[in-house]
Simulated assay, not measured.
Amino acid sequence: MTLEINTMADVPENDSCATAFAILSFPYTLSQDASAATNNDGFIDTCSGMNDGVWFTFVGNGNDVVIDCTDIVGWDPELGVYSGSCGTFTCVGQVDDNGTGGDETLEFSTVAGTVYYINFGHYSSGNDEPEGVYTITITEHEPPQPIANDACADAIAITSFPYTNAQDATLATNNGGFIVAGCSSDMNDGAWYTFTGNGNEITVEISNVDGWDPQLDVYTGSCGTFTCAGSADDGGNSAGETVTVASVAGTTYFINVGHYSGFDDEAEGPYQINVSSVLGTQSFAGAGFKSYPNPVKDVLNVSYSKTINEVTVYNLLGQQVFAKSLNAKGGQINLSSLNTGNYIVKLTSDQEVQTLKILKQ
């Protein structure tokens, strides 16, 4: 003869709103068998309605709260969050994935000092059905804060290099409107930085991008009257961007880190920015390099004791206006297409870099 003994689960201590478990700190986790929970508080009509299941309560402190209900076995749950008091609730949020055994997650922002009640029970507001096994995990995090450099006028001034800053720009606004500066594409007004050129190459890099699609622009000019000096958008969500500009000593530059679109106002998010100033690894040996004439009417002649790989010309806004692969020890650079004015010529030879300022007549 075989004797079978069936044991019934105990009624949970938190079976009613009045005996809700008080959560005093986060993170909070509890695994529980609620199969003997009763519908003693009746159906909860607040929000979309559900069974009275098991209960938790806590006092908000202004942070965001995430409730995850997992490890569900053999029943169809719903998760409700309310403010107010037992029997007199106001709906904060409710979620039901409509699947037996499905997990439930609810995230919401709390108000400091407000009492909240969590009900985790069977989904139905018309049939008293049993709950079952589950695990509840509750975490909190500080909500995003407005950033100080949300506008060009409030751009963070970078006074020395290298510079690093990490922030969450989720609450950045498009307060300046879309930025139209002659770059390859327009973009949102995002988070702002500014620096003064020192004659070196300035590299701006953003990384640790989380959950949004950024564009990185560098401008000269002044707030509201920009000229594009450099722009990068690789077109990928959560991807980093890098821009290098040949800075002109004394020129003011602005950096805009924002959502890529020039027509949809979309949210920014977390990122890290790194700005560095780099001289050429080694200047050309003075005696071995020659360039003439200066001023230049049409053709600039250059020569060096080693192979000159590349010649690049920038205007005084730091914009590239001419580039040529030379790959010879000397050659003629035809600049007849350039307007009259001052330019910076950059020549590279392997790891060596030479820059000179010319006047184009």
Rank of each mutant, 00 (worst) to 15 (best):
P143A: 05
N174V: 08
G182F: 12
Y193N: 10
D186H: 07
Y193E: 03
I156H: 12
D150A: 01
A166I: 01
P130R: 15
A151T: 15
A191V: 01
D189E: 07
Y163L: 07
S184I: 06
P162G: 02
T173C: 05
A155Y: 10
N149M: 04
Y163N: 07
I156E: 14
D186Y: 04
A191H: 05
T194K: 15
P130K: 12
P143I: 07
C183F: 07
D150P: 08
N174M: 08
D189I: 05
V133W: 04
D186G: 08
A148Q: 11
G176L: 07
G182L: 09
T194S: 14
Q145V: 15
I136R: 00
I179A: 06
Q167Y: 04
T194I: 01
V133P: 00
Q145C: 04
F161E: 08
I156T: 15
D168S: 01
S184E: 15
E142P: 13
P130Y: 12
D128I: 07
G177Q: 09
F178Q: 08
S185D: 08
A151Q: 11
D186E: 10
E131Q: 15
T137Y: 03
E142L: 13
A151Y: 13
A155E: 07
A155P: 09
W192Q: 00
A153R: 06
E129H: 08
P146Q: 00
I147P: 01
M187C: 09
N175E: 11
A151R: 11
I136Y: 01
I158H: 03
I147K: 00
P162R: 02
Q145H: 08
V133A: 12
C152Y: 00
A157S: 15
Y134H: 11
T170N: 10
D154Q: 14
A191M: 08
T164W: 01
F161N: 09
C183N: 13
G190V: 13
P144N: 02
I156N: 11
A157M: 04
Q145S: 12
D168N: 13
N188K: 00
